[in-house]
Design a protein around this nucleic acid. Structure first.
Lengths: 340, 340
DNA sequence: TACGTTTCCGGCAACGATTGCGTAATTTTA
DNA sequence: TAAAATTACGCAATCGTTGCCGGAAACGTA
């Protein structure tokens, strides 16, 4: 490999000490203008760039942050990542992205890798299979700055940002009720996820607010979070043809929505009698058929806020004890009945 | 703050030297079994993990590879990234993902950052705005291992992997001809991209093979690669209502396809008379309307191959002078006329 | 002139891990 | 039994950079 230029080389060439070169490059006031100029010009000439690894070792800071999401191939997460990058980039941080693919094991390994890799902090959206938080608690206790976004947990006191899932689910459900739907089912994500709980509560509260008795057969969880086609099919069968016949559905994620649509497409008659509102950040939602209404989360903004929070934590000179959990509003887009 | 265990701590605790600890941990034959056991057990106990930054500095290797794509929010790229990660992970490399958003400036900055950040090698898919390759040539000349995937360039001799775009475009065009379409337009990507050139040639060759005279008004480039809605609209207007009326369209990317579909949805009459084959790796292509035929690239596999190539380059003890450009087949999925 | 202040810079050590070389202790060989 | 070989470990340098301490020279003040 090519041998990059170093401070020592500059020092030798100019017959000054490495310390002087270092200070000159960092524009220290302890160095005379003349020396600075000599150093800067020579550095420029040999195309010197400081070695970030050496700086990291010396400063015990890597200027990089780790991100853990379920999947970059998920619109919501890729939008979040764009938000994170936009902020991190401005603040001089690199972003290292890892994916859990919703597996607990991969989450543990990736979080470990990131910490090991000496990132200055981590942004986490939990995997849907995680119920034990030890791996994260440990790191947090050791002082590693962590911020949660989207799928957050209560077990760790820190900054968090997520959609106001309660509110969004409430609004969506209430809208369906007002439109006259009687049997509104809820196709939910893995039950251990924060977003699942919050959305379910929003759904239940909307029913309660409209004095509708809750039939527990109207809620179905997808423990695999949409990765298991069969699981979703079973849940839908339940809604479509089972003892309980739903006339509307609140669906908790993009993936669940798309699988649902696929099934409805094979069942056109039933499709006409089922109205859907799904959480979706797909950028082609308007092209999908059957046509569904949807709740769009502020993914990009969520990424930005999460990154800002993390950088604030990292750069704080004193331990932070006051934390905030930001809730972002979702946008409900009504696109009509399936009957229309 | 976050204070990880070090070799020195172990050495002190066990009253041996750091060298001994290091060698014991690396299972050197120069260390007695007894000492090894003591060291290993204590290391385990205090949860020691070597500091990768220190190792990087010492070994001048970071065990990480950089990836530059246009956008992670693009299905094709996120699938490629999954392929890259699967291989890199196995081989013990970290993956640092950066996005150019198809901007030349961001490409230059990101590539510089990655190199600076001492990655051991880089995987690049060119931004659609790049026409000057100096920033990459320089790094390559300095000995940084680079592999190109998808959007490759001729200017650098190295490993490359991309879809057999010529073949795919040829097949798609030929199929349209055989189906009886007479005026087959081609909505192309930015003209400086390799994939654009290859696909165009496939298109042209298919016409030639069927003795169809080429009308140059049937090809429209999108210099912004789909980021500029207006540009696509103009191109489509040209095809739909201009002097030339296409009855079929070969579309070069997902983004171009979706915008096209959006426009057709606002123009249902015209939609019925236009048949489309688009390059697409969308995982909801089957749900999109209007229904289009598509060419799916082996994105995951492409990522895997690219990563394998890069790691081979990185780990080669001798300079490599023989390079290969792998071409992967695309899969053509015919989904019928729009008239059906 | 004598003494205190700046200005400007060099030297040392350290961040954490690795490794070539040296060497004492032990074992093997002649 | 002496010499040679082997075993097991420590020392110190190294990767590139930076913080701390100290000190010479130049400058200012009484």
């Amino acid at each position: 490999m090519f041998q990059a230029a170093t401070i020592k080389q500059i020092a030798e060439a100019l017959a000054v000490s490495p310390s002087t070169v270092s200070r000159a490059l960092r524009n220290s006031h302890e160095i005379s203008a003349k020396t600075k100029k000599r150093v800067l010009e020579y550095a420029q000439k040999i195309n010197y760039h400081s070695n970030p690894i050496a700086v990291s070792l010396r400063n015990r800071r890597s200027n990089s942050i780790g991100v853990l999401v379920a999947d970059v191939a998920n619109s919501f997460f890729s939008q979040t990542i764009n938000g994170i990058e936009s902020i991190a980039y401005e603040a001089g941080y690199h972003v290292i992205i890892t994916q859990s693919h919703d597996s607990y094991e991969r989450e543990v390994i990736n979080v470990g890798h990131l910490a090991n890799r000496s990132v200055d902090g981590i942004l986490i959206s939990m995997s849907s299979h995680t119920t034990d938080y030890k791996h994260i608690v440990q790191l947090h206790e050791r002082g590693l700055p962590i911020v949660f976004f989207d799928r957050i947990i209560d077990e760790i006191q820190t900054f968090k940002v997520t959609t106001d899932n309660f509110k969004s689910a409430f609004e969506a459900t209430a809208l369906l009720i007002e439109k006259g739907f009687k049997k509104i089912g809820h196709l939910a994500n893995a039950p251990q996820l924060s977003i699942t709980v919050e959305r379910l509560q929003g759904y239940l509260s909307a029913l309660a607010a409209h004095h509708i008795e809750f039939d527990e057969r109207l809620v179905k969880y997808c423990h695999e979070g949409g990765r298991n086609q069969l699981e979703i099919e079973e849940a839908l069968n339940h809604f479509l043809s089972g003892a309980i016949e739903a006339d509307a559905l609140l669906i908790a994620s993009d993936r669940l929505s798309t699988v649902t649509m696929r099934i409805l497409n094979n069942n056109p008659d039933r499709a006409k009698t089922l109205t859907i509102i799904g959480f979706s950040n797909s950028d082609v939602i308007d092209l999908l058929s059957p046509r569904i209404s949807f709740i769009r989360q502020s993914a990009f903004e969520m990424g930005q806020i999460a990154a800002q929070m993390l950088i604030k934590l990292i750069e704080s000179k004193y331990p932070v004890y006051e934390f905030e959990t930001r809730l972002l509003d979702g946008e409900l887009h009504w696109r009509g009945n399936s009957k229309d």
